[in-house]
Amino acid sequence: MSSSPSLSAWLRAVFTVGSHAGAHRVALRAGVSVAAPLLAVWALGHVEWTLYAAFGAFTALYGRASATLPRLKMQASAAAIMMSSMLIGVAVASLPDREWVVVGVAAVWTMIVAAVSDVLRWHPPGPLFAVFALCAVASVPVTSNSFRDALLVSGATAIFALAVGCVGHVRPARRAAVAPAMAGPAAGGLTVRKRPGLRSRLHETFSRPGEWLLLARFGIAAAVAGSLSTAFGIGHPYWAIVSAIVPIASANMSHSFVRATHRVLGTLAGLVLAWAILSLNPSGLTAIVTVVALQVAAELLVGRNYGLALVFVTPLALVMIELSHPVDTQTLIADRAVETLLGTVVALGVVVAAWLVARRRTARRRTARR
């Protein structure tokens, strides 16, 4: 784990905007995957299903740069995890004193999904969407039919997203690079290494130096952020949990500081946009069109600059919540700001502590070798 970045390097990383890299295709798939299910639940008169439909549609966000078949496999595994997250969320929501239960469940689920992500090589990596789905669903009231509704709606939406994920093309150069990797023994006397099986991936992942420490960091950050938010009585503690996850998923401490900065600045700017949108009281079809537009904008930017993407992700999350379970707008915005700052501070504390532990271990090893 590297040390913190210099000021100039940090500024460059925070404000650099990457290349477009075909983001319009990903944004189009994501937009269609979100629009159709939300229109369906609206037409059926069940806007309370919005969260189930939206999180099921998040399946489309995985494997953005992969060829069709690898993308389908990745999205299928992500769909299973997203559906499981919502079903766990419904189960937690039905319990008494769920505020503290969800903190413990979310911390454990964070580590499990982080491990799954590493083993299956997800892109984007990490447990962010799954934990968001679990906690958001756990935070809204449930009925006797909620488990059935979550299963059917999220399942149907995920299947639709998988179908949409099969559409699109990979550039010829990309096909040429991907096809041999899936072919096994090649013609002309050339041998191409096969993709490692699940057992090999499990061994490789859990024998990798620092893997168990990384999973522990995820769990600790989620548990501490959620516990502090719940103890302080701040509304929507899952935003603190989600915000604590983001910097932990980074490759090193330098990147963690950049992601944390993106999270805070992007969220604060996004809250201004969210306030403007929610002050217009969008509902029904207007709200759905708004959600789809924000989702497309976010996907156009997330690969280029995470902070810019959050300007649109933030109002997207708030409008989704307002659709499924209306709450006071001012409270919603204030909670999001406070929770984001709290979760980010907790995450950076965990990252720095882990860096200090790793540095001490390295120093001890060097001393032992002398």
Rank of each mutant, 00 (worst) to 15 (best):
V116N: 00
L134C: 07
S146P: 07
I81Y: 00
T157V: 10
L134F: 00
C166N: 03
L87N: 06
A183E: 12
A138G: 09
L151K: 04
D97N: 14
T110C: 04
L120Y: 01
P127S: 03
V142K: 06
S117A: 09
M83Q: 11
A183F: 05
H123D: 13
W122Q: 02
M86T: 03
S154W: 00
R148N: 09
V116L: 11
T157N: 05
V90N: 01
A106C: 03
F160K: 06
H169T: 14
A130D: 03
M82V: 13
A114I: 04
A163G: 15
L69G: 08
A163V: 14
A173P: 01
A79K: 00
C166Y: 03
A136V: 14
P172S: 05
A133M: 01
A93L: 08
N145S: 13
V164E: 12
L151T: 09
A179W: 07
V153E: 02
L128T: 03
W122D: 00
P70W: 13
L128K: 01
A161S: 15
L72Y: 13
A130P: 06
T143F: 00
V105P: 05
A115R: 03
F160P: 10
M82C: 05
A136F: 11
G89N: 05
G104W: 01
T157M: 09
P127E: 04
M111G: 06
D97H: 15
S144G: 15
P70M: 13
L151C: 04
A133L: 05
S85H: 00
F129I: 13
